[in-house]
């Protein structure tokens, strides 16, 4: 029992430490974004840096994965405080809210339909081609 609690505490402590490291990376990213003066936010720079560190095996996946996976799993939570900001535009929303929501919902539906349909079509056509080439190979080998 005591061992179980201790391993749990170590796990949570590990997550906190890893989140702190990821936070550090995003701070470095923010610094780069300020220094270079290009419209790419610091967090995206941080993402690129972490990817390269992983790719070139400077950072091991286990060093960041439990904290990183936790952050991704709970990402919706982090959007909530800014979403409550809708409150500050109560007046505008009262007068033009319906038009704004109709515009956004229709446009979002169109974007998702087009993006999903194109990706699916390309994926299917490529799969068909793969199946065909596999058949061709099998026929060639059976002859």
């Amino acid at each position: 029992m005591f061992v179980a609690i201790r391993s749990k505490v170590t796990h949570i402590f590990g997550i906190i430490l890893q989140v702190a490291c990821l936070f550090g990376l995003s701070e470095i990213g923010t610094w780069i974004s300020k220094a270079l003066d290009v419209p790419v936010p610091g967090s995206i720079w941080g993402l690129i840096i972490l990817f390269l560190l992983l790719k070139f095996k400077i950072v091991k996946l286990e060093w960041v994965s439990s904290g990183g996976d936790w952050l991704i799993r709970e990402m919706l939570l982090f959007f909530i405080p800014s979403s409550v900001g809708i409150l500050s535009y109560g007046n505008l929303m009262l007068h033009q809210g319906i038009q704004i929501v109709v515009t956004i919902v229709t446009s979002t539906a169109l974007v998702m339909l087009v993006t999903g349909a194109i990706a699916e079509t390309v994926w299917k056509s490529r799969q068909r081609r793969n199946v065909k080439s596999r058949y061709a190979k099998e026929e060639a080998s059976s002859c």
Binding site: S26, L47, L61, I72
Partner: peptide, 28 residues
């Protein structure tokens, strides 16, 4: 809203490391 936002700022601050963490599934 500004009072609420400043009191829950820690959560908003987590968005940056969460975006950085997207490198992990990208790598996988």
């Amino acid at each position: 809203y500004s009072t609420y936002f400043s009191r829950s700022k820690l959560l908003t601050d987590m968005l940056n490391p969460a975006t950085v963490a997207l490198a992990i599934p990208l790598y996988r």
